[in-house]
Design a protein around this nucleic acid. Structure first.
Lengths: 191, 191
DNA sequence: CAAATTTTGGGACATTTGTCCCACTTACAG
DNA sequence: CTGTAAGTGGGACAAATGTCCCAAAATTTG
């Protein structure tokens, strides 16, 4: 539900404390609803979440949003854009108070090439994200929502934060109305 | 519609001809409907398409398939599994006669680390794939199919191969019946 | 604390999509 | 050439989802 990567979080903590790498990394804080990255914007930085949770979403031309994932501690942001030299493909918005490590895109490339641990952790993170989003897309197309909902609800219970119905429905790619209907029906069958 | 990566294809051609790297790469040929990778299977190799087209799909527990993408020349296969040390997350099936370059997963990691060009091309390819599948997922959730279909049809026209209705509907994540209905309606509005 | 705003819950109806089924065409093996 | 299988096209109905709308609850703000 909320992805994290403690390995990368710990590594960043280490790099920040290290004399030779620490001054390339700064910290930044955001409040809920503030946006770290805005779709179609050119980026100069790469971020790694130190604490807090964000939503990563795509806004289509019809102004509707689709939430790809909720990203938490140790997740990296803006790396796809740094690698591909493109504008932001999605928007990153804080849904809790947020602290991120910040480095320039150039520095990111430098770390990636010169620090084997950083390189392999980031590579694995991106590969994992690709697998996750692929599986999510498949699940959403192949199952009816009433089959997906129970999984989502149990995933929600183990989370410490609560999501708005709006966010949940955008994560599922359905309207709030449909989500409400499903939740009501789920209740009835449980009783 | 069909993704390709000529940069990687050319690079592989070069590496195959090169004395020091060539003997780590072999060629393999498949016929349409043959499977190069089967979901949940453990892999020992990484493949790069030399010629032909494949479909990359996920089979869910309800036996339905979702086609993530059609992969053509220069696309890499099995790299996610090599990076993450996991079993195959999807199945790769030839839909035309296919020739692939084959290398062991170990060799893949070695190339990635020691050949800067190979590393950066593969990294960029994976990043691009992540962006593509994210956009596809968003599009499928946020637009009605009648809005997506015209884009798909125009993409189809520029392709040299024809897809079965089955494949197209699995790419869209809908039933063949729905696809037929949409195609019929699209015709009527055009007339 | 009260007003204003956001969030939630749900009725009623339209639209979309799936399921089941059958007929017609096309490709291919014997 | 012929029978079988695979692929295509579509009717009829059921189920899922969206849209529009309104009211109650919760949250924020002055």
């Amino acid at each position: 539900m909320i992805t994290t990567n403690l390995q990368l979080r710990n590594l960043m903590e280490e790099l920040t404390g290290n004399e030779s790498t620490g001054n390339a990394i700064t910290l930044r804080t955001l409040q809920p609803k503030q946006r770290l990255i805005v779709q179609d914007q050119a980026l100069q930085s790469v971020y790694i979440i130190r604490s807090g949770v964000t939503k990563c979403f795509i806004t289509e031309n019809n102004e509707r949003d689709y939430i790809l994932d909720f990203l938490g501690e140790g997740e990296i942001l803006g790396e796809i854009e740094a690698i591909r030299h493109t504008r932001a493909t999605c928007t990153i918005e804080a849904i809790t108070p947020l602290t991120v490590y910040t480095m320039s895109s150039v520095q990111f490339h430098h770390f990636f090439k010169t620090l084997p641990t950083f390189g392999s952790v980031v590579l694995e993170l991106i590969a994992t994200r690709l697998a996750r989003i692929s599986e999510k897309a498949a699940r959403q197309q192949l199952y009816t929502l009433s089959e997906i909902l129970p999984q989502l609800l149990s995933a929600l219970e183990s989370q410490q934060i609560t999501f708005t119905k709006q966010d949940l429905s955008e994560y599922l790619g359905i309207s709030v109305r449909s989500l409400n209907r499903l939740l009501k029906d789920a209740d009835n069958t449980t009783i």
